[in-house]
């Protein structure tokens, strides 16, 4: 026990050593770290942009809800296709994401319940269904529930290599290629449809009057969210909600216009990714969680500064 305690204390409060703390995390497994950072940024940037729109629509929790409710989609897709490849998993998750969205809309449209209750009912029931299926067909489904829940960013460099090669670093891991494709697609779609998204977020009546179908935009956004969530699932698990919300929530302390908000959110997403991977390598803990913590720390600092500045402003007025 004693031994355990000291070992443990050593872990919790590491000795401060510049080499160990600042440099080793980046040099020890340099090649692997590059891929992890790239992966985190490729996931973090589209998530940050998407999260801004979700928060505008007061649907920040949709990311968390969908990240739970894709589970049955993954299991059923596996049971049908017997394949854990990208395509069936993406397809299953997208269908599950859309089913979630349709169910939430259906329940709110046809009963007295509000969006929050409908969301709660839908995602918990679907998650339970997923766990039930995993449970029932445990022998035949090689889905690691822990992996779905927590994600393993550390496995990215170890994943199967793709055909793509980059100079000294060698073959690009497959997940990075997939995430890159997702990031380009998501950012592209968001840029193309940014006006539609903005108009439908702020003024549904006006959107209808200029011929934008708010319903279609909503479902499109949710479909995109499902794709992003499932791409991120293997690497960051349920913490995809952190990637979605934290950068935008931090950025809104400094920005009021959409362009600036997006720009700052991207910056915060990148800094959180780098800081998080550093933290993860240093403390030897899961990088996904460390990225979320780094994002949370950024938010806390920005929050504290804003409260302090407001206090000073009030003092200035009073004095």
């Amino acid at each position: 026990m004693n031994e355990l305690m000291t070992g443990f204390g050593g872990l919790m409060v590491p000795r401060f050593d510049v080499e160990e703390v600042l440099i080793a995390p980046w040099t020890r497994y340099a090649d692997a770290t590059v891929w992890m950072v790239l992966m985190a940024v490729l996931l973090g940037v589209p998530c940050a942009l998407l999260g801004n729109y979700l928060m505008l629509r007061r649907m920040a929790l949709a990311g968390d809800a969908i990240s739970h409710s894709v589970l049955p989609g993954l299991v059923i897709s596996y049971l049908i296709f017997r394949d854990l490849g990208t395509l069936p998993m993406m397809g299953g998750a997208m269908v599950a994401g859309l089913v979630t969205t349709v169910l939430i809309e259906f329940i709110t449209g046809r009963s007295r319940l509000k969006t929050d209750a409908a969301m709660g009912i839908t995602y918990t029931t679907l998650f339970a269904l997923g766990m039930f299926l995993v449970n029932r067909y445990a022998g035949r489904v090689h889905l690691d529930a822990d992996c779905v829940l927590f994600g393993e960013l550390e496995y990215v460099p170890l994943a199967e290599p793709s055909g793509l090669r980059v100079g000294r670093l060698g073959a690009v891991p497959m997940p990075v290629v997939i995430a890159g494709g997702m990031a380009v697609g998501t950012v592209g779609l968001l840029m193309v449809f940014s006006r539609w998204l903005l108009v439908t977020s702020f003024d549904g009546g006006f959107a209808r009057s200029v011929g934008i179908r708010a319903g279609a935009v909503h479902y499109g956004l949710m479909a995109l969210l499902s794709v992003v969530v499932v791409t991120a699932l293997e690497s960051v698990g349920l913490l995809v909600a952190a990637l979605l919300v934290l950068p935008g929530a931090t950025a809104q302390f400094f920005a009021r216009r959409m362009g600036r908000l997006h720009g700052l959110a991207v910056v915060f997403a990148v800094t959180a990714s780098v800081a998080g991977i550093h933290l993860g390598a240093w403390l030897n803990c899961p990088s996904a969680a460390a990225i979320a913590l780094a994002g949370g720390a950024q938010f806390a600092v920005a929050w504290g500064v804003s409260v302090w500045l407001r206090g000073r402003a009030v003092e200035g007025v009073a004095g």
Binding site: A60, G63, F150, L246, F253, A289, A292, W303, S306
Partner: peptide, 23 residues
């Protein structure tokens, strides 16, 4: 103390606490 809406505030708290728990 911020302009964040309830859903965003809950998301922030949820993800940060959850991440801390995992770590």
């Amino acid at each position: 103390t911020t302009r964040l809406k309830a859903d965003a505030a809950q998301s922030v708290v949820l993800t940060v606490f959850f991440a801390a728990g995992i770590v």
